[in-house]
Amino acid sequence: MANLSVEFVLQQLLNGISIGSIYALIALGYTMVYGIIQLINFAHGDVMMIGAYVGWYCTAVLHMPFLPALLTAMLACSLLGVVIERVAYKPLRRSTRLAALITAIGVSFFLEYGMMFLVSPQTRTFPPVFPQTIYHVGPLNIKYGDIVIITVTLALMALLTLVVKYTRIGKAMRAVSFDKDAAALMGIDVNNVISATFAIGSALAAAAGVLIGVYYNTIGPLMGIMPGLKAFVAAVLGGIGIIPGAMLGGLALGLTEVLVSAAGFSTWRDAGAFLILIVVLIVKPTGLLGANTREKV
């Protein structure tokens, strides 16, 4: 065990918040899609990967600054999300859960290995888009990247909350997730709302992808699997279908992971995440913020 000082713990907490906010961003997409069509969108982590590649292309090849690259990636991925929904998931909306789940896994593999085919399996290095400054605030070393991640995440979450709470499309999304048929009867175009949900969720995933790219410097076609699965764990942890739950779950998962690593068990980190998942599923399947619902017979 490393020297357990206050500085060390605070530093680890900061790292945990950085990683946790990325998980939270991805988890938001999972949770929104699940809230609306009860589908675990396995391809979500791979949409994030594509976002990272678009971000890489914009910064490394087109030499764009960070913010335009981020926006381009988000735009590209929201289009991709809508296309995936229209092509693969829409024909299956009335079919069984198993069929939809298997399709989602199929799409996920298609994106991974399609990218591998297109851009070769080797990893790529992100150009340094930020100054490598490190701020010393008291005992803490805060990287410029940490600040960017936390700011971008907070901004996007605030934006999402505003959209869901106060806009027409947000109201329609809440209505559809509450009762799809009743919403349709009230004159809401359910198909458009579902597409919008995919677009927003995928844009958030793309932002997470670009952030991961600039934070860890390397990206690869299979980079989406683990963060994707873990973000799903985060979504389940907070209560799937609940937007604040995804944020909470992401942060909780990031902090747990960092603490497990800091305690000297870094190779066990992923097992910890999945153990949390199984325990949550067994003890309280509705998640931390979920209300218990009785099953209707």
């Binding site: 693969a88 299956l92 298997i102 399709t103 199929g106 593999f109 290995y113 399609g114 591998m116």
Partner: peptide, 14 residues
């Protein structure tokens, strides 16, 4: 191989 398998799967499910 993986591309073929994944496309096959999606088409099958539909």
């Amino acid at each position: 191989r993986m591309i073929i398998i994944s496309v096959l799967l999606v088409v099958m499910m539909i």
